[in-house]
Design a protein around this nucleic acid. Structure first.
Lengths: 200, 200
DNA sequence: ACCTGAACACCGTTCAAGT
DNA sequence: ACCTGAACACCGTTCAAGT
């Protein structure tokens, strides 16, 4: 057998990633398997290994696409808002993505590279680019603060918003009478920034 | 074969959980399997299903033990400190646990119950108990605030600290020149509380 | 060069059979 | 009642063999 040649390498990679995204969207990262992806695109499992080093590689590439989508949403959300509003918009856009593309977003953090191996550099760069978006607007908000202070504040805020998403999605940690996630995020931003700017 | 009777049901459960904890500590949740646990305690896989409903049940029980350990550390950390110091101590104790018992702590959040099933009530209660520890000290710090405000603040802070841990452990998100995790956490608490108390 | 099919070493879960 | 051993349906990964 062999030689179907219906798709180029790039096409195979594309439909593979798309199938993976659909599987994850439907059943979460745990519902993803190389065999299921192969079945869904009408190839044998072995074929996937022509285009992806292994399943971890496939997931890493899928996650990079998620990062791209997330970045686009964040960048669109800021628009030309003034700093404080821009930061709030960034947070709300992040929340929105986590809430409405839950499985895709969770896969970003659930997937851990095997023991020794690290994540590709392109992945790290996309994360850095996203972080700088936050940092930029914090800097605009507090022009007199040192770059170190701004970096620290951006990191604290970003981590905080991330934690709000995580704990909200994890039904395990949903305490009774929990507030809507947006409200918690707003509280975090408002109070942190009040403290941060107040000591400007 | 059969009938070894070297261990009671409770003992079997205990050595099973202990073996699971050792495997997770060494290789993370991904390195855990029912067959490995069985091998490690010198029983066949089937025997595990006498004591645990399935692997998810085993992991859930293991995670409950982790929650107990974490709660003990947090409670010990507060001691009889005044509110503000108590909150800082809680955060630092949480960070410490995440940093030094990383795999055990990560397992708490990496493990997701299968599609329909939810986490046992005892688990939820242990989480609630931990959350109330934070809430209690925030209430002491701001006696004039409404219970709703206090709950919101506690939730924002707890989520924030959690996010700091998560993103710090995830080497993926380590941005270059990242500050030490404790510093980020302190910034989060100090500035949030400055904002929160300032509007008291 | 592309792709298959079968193989290998794993996995969770069940259960008849043995003591 | 306790425990085993084998079975079943899955899994990731490799690779000789076919076109």
């Amino acid at each position: 057998m062999g030689r179907r040649n219906e798709h180029t390498r790039d096409e195979l990679r594309e439909i593979g990633l798309r199938a993976a995204e659909e599987l994850v969207a439907a059943h979460g990262l745990a519902g993803l398997s190389a065999r299921k992806v192969a079945a869904r695109i009408g190839y044998t499992v072995g074929s996937l290994y022509m285009v992806f080093r292994n399943l971890d590689d496939l997931i890493a590439q899928m996650n990079e696409r998620t990062l791209d989508a997330l970045y686009a949403r964040l960048a669109a959300a800021v628009g030309d808002r003034p700093p404080a509003a821009a930061i709030q918009a960034l947070a709300q856009a992040y929340l929105h993505f986590a809430l409405f593309e839950t499985h895709r977003w969770l896969a970003l953090y659930q997937h851990r590279m095997p023991e020794g191996r690290s994540v590709p550099q392109s992945f790290t760069e996309k994360v850095a680019r996203m972080f700088e978006l936050v940092q930029h607007h914090v800097a605009l908000l507090c022009p007199r603060r040192s770059p170190e202070d701004v970096a620290l504040a951006a990191r604290a805020l970003w981590s905080g918003i991330h934690g709000v998403c995580m704990l909200s999605l994890d039904r395990k940690l949903e305490t009774v009478g929990g507030r809507p996630i947006q409200e918690v995020a707003t509280s975090l931003l408002d109070n942190y920034l009040a403290g941060f700017v107040g000591r400007d």
